[in-house]
């Protein structure tokens, strides 16, 4: 508990988390407002389109929480105060993941609410399991994304490097894999951010439908399975990062 309090003080006594939080929420809510105002048909799934961008901001927040510690050597001050490096870093991960989860929930329900205000007559009631998952699940993907970002931050230690890896990975690389002939889409079914998107999807086409529409990713996992897979990748990467941090000279 002490360590959680320490990491909370550290996180909220600098400015970048506030900026990232504001930006993440503004982007998803703003995007939802734009879509709601301009689209003919607005569904619950569409209101969440902007949260995918907010996720990227949260990845940056997670990476920064670690890389600024290395940048300003406060990580050394941390390891002096708490020589058990693993517990210090796990506490940091827990705090940032929790904050990311809260940002996700606020962004998701905020986006949904703004669409509801702009298009009061559209069918925006959240009443199916898939719709609940698409909205309330955003916080879960944000929390897991934060864990993954912290792992990358610990491994890379430099802000520019860590942020570049996370942006290219989440925004670009996983999509580009689909361009590889034949195997591309098969690989995509096992990529972490693809699985995160699968978890949040309201309408998941069956294998037959994908075939009929001329290709796409057929996920082998159920939607909750996809989330567990995404979480598994993030935690595995964190474990590697913790082992490396423990061995390395601070």
């Amino acid at each position: 508990m002490t360590l959680l309090a320490v990491e909370r003080i550290k996180l909220f006594s600098t400015r970048s988390p506030y900026w990232c939080t504001a930006l993440a929420i503004a982007m998803s809510v703003g995007f939802a407002a734009l879509l709601a105002a301009n689209a003919d048909q607005v569904g619950v799934g569409l209101t969440q389109a902007g949260t995918r961008l907010a996720l990227v901001v949260v990845l940056v927040l997670g990476a920064l929480a670690v890389t600024t510690e290395y940048r300003f050597s406060t990580i050394r001050a941390t390891f002096l105060a708490v020589p058990g490096r693993t517990s210090a870093l796990v506490a940091k991960t827990a705090v940032v993941a929790l904050v990311a989860g809260v940002i996700g929930e606020v962004a998701a329900f905020g986006s949904w609410a703004i669409a509801k205000v702009i298009k009061p007559n559209a069918d925006l009631a959240i009443n199916t399991g898939a719709e609940w998952r698409a909205v309330a699940g955003v916080g879960l993907t944000f929390a897991i994304g934060a864990i993954l970002a912290i792992a990358v931050g610990i491994l890379v230690r430099q802000t520019a490097g860590a942020v570049a890896i996370l942006l290219v990975w989440s925004m670009l690389a996983e999509n580009l894999v689909g361009l590889i002939p034949k195997v591309g889409v098969k690989i995509q079914a096992w990529l972490p951010f693809m699985n995160a998107d699968n978890f949040l999807a309201v309408n998941t086409p069956s294998a037959g439908e994908v075939e009929a529409t001329g290709g796409g990713v057929v996920f082998k996992l159920s939607q909750w399975g996809s989330l567990a897979y995404f979480a598994g990748i993030a935690v595995a990467l964190l474990v590697v990062a913790l082992v490396v941090a423990k061995r390395r000279d601070a």
Partner: peptide, 13 residues
Amino acid sequence: ALLDAKWVHPNRS
């Protein structure tokens, strides 16, 4: 220990 006086986040009070 004081190893380096700059081991402080510049935006933190």
